[in-house]
């Protein structure tokens, strides 16, 4: 493996979402990611393609796996990675998002990786800085690297995305993972279903190009991929769904519900899992069907590819979105 650019240049300045990416953009990123999978399994993981580059992880919302994954990705490519979290003093002191962006911009970073609890905040920030920005999750809007790592996992196991049927199950309404995945899978020619109680589906979900189901047995019928979403605890107690018990009974993935899917269907979950709420613990740990740990592994490869692609991107092209 060389340090030379291995794919055609990524034609966007930022990675703010899957929306706006072409099938070729996505395929190029996945191809690039795939090359890092083996690399990451070696003892010597260090490369130098981002040597001298400064990457700032700017997280306004707590995260372990995404932040660590980006940090590892940056370091393995030889970049200098700095982590800043919501506890960062000036944010705590009431500095506005734009002021924070301007302050960081003055330090000339090359890539800003941003997570924020409000939809659209990452885009707003991207408009104020000179460097590349990667959206690591903004509110209920997008989480593009999650969708890419999911796609990479699927492609690795199934050899393709086109023509597969994917069921995304659970709290679609509050999920940026669902929105990014719906975008990506539709762009790549997969058929997407969502399965959830009506209260966990946003208005006019059908208009996103998905088939809507309220019954797991129907929604999982003959699917290739079952993608479970996390149900946040505060949404379980009577407001959106009446109880954990009822949610698991009707929407938790267990072997009985899984029977409707194809025998070789894969089980995915973006993590962190609520065992016994959206997913039965045995199913989650099924080594033949659950690819949940593989998703985490793919995460680092995908983020390396994204960092590299954006570092090599021409600076004078229009923003992606």
């Amino acid at each position: 493996m060389t340090d030379e650019p291995t794919s055609s240049a990524f034609p966007h300045r930022h990675l703010l979402g899957i929306e706006g990416l072409s099938p070729d953009d996505i395929t190029a990123l996945l191809d690039r990611s795939e090359r890092y999978i083996e690399h990451n399994r070696q003892a010597d993981k260090k490369r130098s393609s981002l040597r001298g580059r400064t990457i700032i992880n700017l997280f306004f919302e707590s995260s372990t796996r995404t932040r660590t994954s980006f940090e590892l990705a940056g370091k393995r490519l030889g970049g200098d990675v700095i982590n800043m979290s919501a506890q960062w003093s000036s944010i705590k002191k009431g500095e506005t998002l734009i002021d924070t962006a301007m302050t960081l911009n003055a330090m000339h970073p090359d890539v800003l990786i941003v997570r924020h609890p409000e939809s659209g905040a990452v885009q707003l920030l991207s408009e104020k800085v000179d460097c590349a920005v990667i959206n690591a999750g903004d509110g209920m809007h997008e989480h593009p690297t999650q969708a890419l790592l999911d796609a990479l996992t699927i492609r690795l196991r199934k050899g393709r995305l086109q023509g597969l049927t994917v069921a995304i199950c659970g709290d679609v309404a509050h999920s940026r993972v669902a929105r990014s995945n719906i975008q990506l899978l539709n762009t790549m020619g997969a058929r997407v279903r969502v399965v959830a109680p009506r209260t966990l589906l946003p208005a006019e979900t059908e208009r996103l190009g998905v088939e809507v189901f309220h019954d797991m047995a129907l929604g999982l019928k003959d699917v290739d991929i079952v993608m479970m979403l996390r149900l946040q605890l505060e949404r379980m107690q009577g407001s959106f769904v009446p109880s954990l018990r009822e949610y698991f009974h009707f929407f938790g993935l267990d072997y009985q519900k899984l029977e409707a899917a194809k025998p070789d269907a894969l089980i995915m979950h973006p993590g962190p899992m609520n065992r016994g709420v959206e997913i039965d613990t045995e199913v989650a740990d099924d080594i033949d069907r659950s690819v949940i740990r593989q998703q985490v592994e793919m995460g680092v490869a995908v983020r390396m590819a994204c960092l590299e692609a954006l570092s090599q991107a021409p600076r004078n092209v229009a923003p992606a979105t």
Binding site: Q237, G238, P242, H249
Partner: peptide, 15 residues
């Protein structure tokens, strides 16, 4: 429809 008829949290309608 709501737990304890208190008008706040939904009951386990499915079950």
């Amino acid at each position: 429809a709501t737990k304890g008829l208190r008008g706040k949290e939904l009951t386990e309608m499915g079950l």
